[in-house]
Design a protein around this nucleic acid. Structure first.
Lengths: 294, 294
DNA sequence: GGGATCGGTTCATCCAATGGACGACCCGCT
DNA sequence: AGCGGGTCGTCCATTGGATGAACCGATCCC
């Protein structure tokens, strides 16, 4: 190393830091911008970035700007949490969307947030513009509450410890209140949220189970507040969710398995039967490059 | 370096080699498997892989297997070639799908192949099971021919040089024949393919232009051979394609700009007018983490 | 024209990356 | 039980690739 060194930082970590400097809202970065964000000297960033470009992970624009490359997008496509889930869920999402003509979305748990895996939005209007790949808070979104309710209790504690951000006057920020809601969610399998995240937007969410009965995702419908009686959309959302779960290999007798409920006794285990059917998500993908269609 | 060194290989290139060892059909790898694939010693692969896991790029299963992480999927989501294109195209894809009830897909050019960016498939049956993120050959698929026809002539030469693989008896492997077809495609804006890739599958494809008149993607419908008269679906495919192009900022007066045609004179440039409207694809994304909806 | 910012190049320094070796462990087979 | 084959995990002496301050030229804007 040169005169001034900062030990403890591996080359790999620097490379990954450069990669993950690309975030929503920072999809197009310059060399100088990267150097500023990462705090690394410009020469170092340059070498790393060019190496990423050479590998196809990043694209170098004619103006010198850097963007995430298609190659990296393809790589992300292989993520097991999203790929099989998406393909299974798509038909259900479409049907639900055509039936309700409202925003529908599918999300999974990632760290302390929910990540939108797929989303269908009414083309015209409506102020809701979240993106696939975007994040949502666990305590104030429909999908978030469903995922949180069925996650390990430690996650709940962690969230409370860090404090529950308030987004609107109706956001639930009282841990005890939230805990009660999560209990309801575990019992009913659904969560209803009214203007807790964004004023003017309500949401109905339900859980998606895999063959083991674990909640692997959450499905929700988002509507403009007051435009629809939420009670009327619940059945269709639940039905779609159960349909998806079945396609994932879940069978009703397995029930639902989830983490220890925060602040209450562990729910009496609903007979953990071995899965009778292999989950679709675990089916081996078509070997090699797929060429079965145009 | 240790006793035996292999100079010329940077740490970064090794790390990326580990990352890109994940391919369709190899989405779940063990440490030993990675070492075998990359040819690196197991100790080296282990360090790199663990570093990737620490950064969230890879997920480490309880059984020691490695998979692409959700974090990396999110990163790929930011790719400019896919993200804006997808959001713009989705409504059109859905409409086209509901109108035809056939497979519809959107692809972009990536290297010497076409990459499927989005796809809607008839839920029930039909043997076509390509995946989003999958690759298709340029010379024998509908979207491939469209993309190839409007790409730089050097790409055509490169493909011919490497040889045109035959997939079915009807695959066009004669360069002169293919060149004629590409000329037709440039004139009409569409390509029709009958069982050149897979027996029993036909396809109609059309081009998608951006504000500069450049062909940035291709849209296609795939149907079972003989199930539909292809001529009858062409208008709807073309209309959807033009609709998408318009949403991308394209205006008819700009025309279509593409690479030098292989083996023929450069098409008389169709007045390269400055774009009157900013292309949707270049609109700045919502700043920061998106929280505008549930 | 002066100041700021950008991309690009150089090069002496030296620490982190390397991989062979070894051990623990888990199978399936005899 | 013993054995071969396959994993995963750890150690450590060696050295060459990574590093970043310094510098250059171009561009832009006031």
């Amino acid at each position: 190393m040169p005169r001034t060194s900062e030990p403890g930082r591996s080359v790999s970590s620097r490379l990954l830091e450069v990669l993950f400097a690309f975030r929503p809202g920072h999809t197009r970065l310059t060399l100088a911008g990267l150097a500023r964000q990462t705090g690394m000297p410009q020469a170092t960033v340059r070498r790393l970035a060019l190496e990423l470009v050479r590998a196809g992970a990043l694209d170098l624009g004619s103006d010198g700007s850097l963007t995430v490359g298609t190659r990296l997008w393809q790589l992300g496509t292989l993520a097991p949490r999203t790929q099989p889930l998406r393909t299974v869920a798509m038909p259900f999402l479409e049907d639900l969307y055509t039936a309700l003509r409202q925003h529908v979305q599918l999300a999974v748990l990632e760290g302390r947030e929910a990540v939108v895996v797929e989303r269908l939005s009414r083309p015209g209007a409506v102020g809701l513009t979240s993106q696939v790949g975007g994040r949502l808070p666990l305590h104030s979104s429909g999908v978030g509450k469903v995922l949180l309710a069925h996650a390990d209790g430690a996650l709940f504690d962690g969230l409370v410890e860090r404090g529950l951000d308030r987004f609107t006057p109706r956001t639930v920020t009282d841990p005890a209140h939230l805990r009660r809601e999560l209990g309801d969610c575990r019992r009913t399998g659904t969560a209803t949220v009214r203007e807790e995240m964004t004023a003017g937007a309500d949401s109905v969410a339900t859980r998606i189970m895999d063959a083991d009965g674990h909640v692997v995702a959450a499905l929700s419908v988002v509507v403009a507040s007051g435009s629809v009686a939420l009670r009327t959309v619940i059945p269709s959302v639940v039905a779609s969710g159960l349909g998806m779960s079945r396609r994932l290999g879940w069978i009703p007798s397995v029930g639902v398995r989830h983490g220890v409920a925060p602040g209450e006794a562990h729910p009496s285990a609903t007979g953990h039967l071995p899965a009778a059917l292999p989950p679709v998500a675990d089916l081996p993908p078509p070997a090699g490059v797929d060429r079965s269609a145009f």
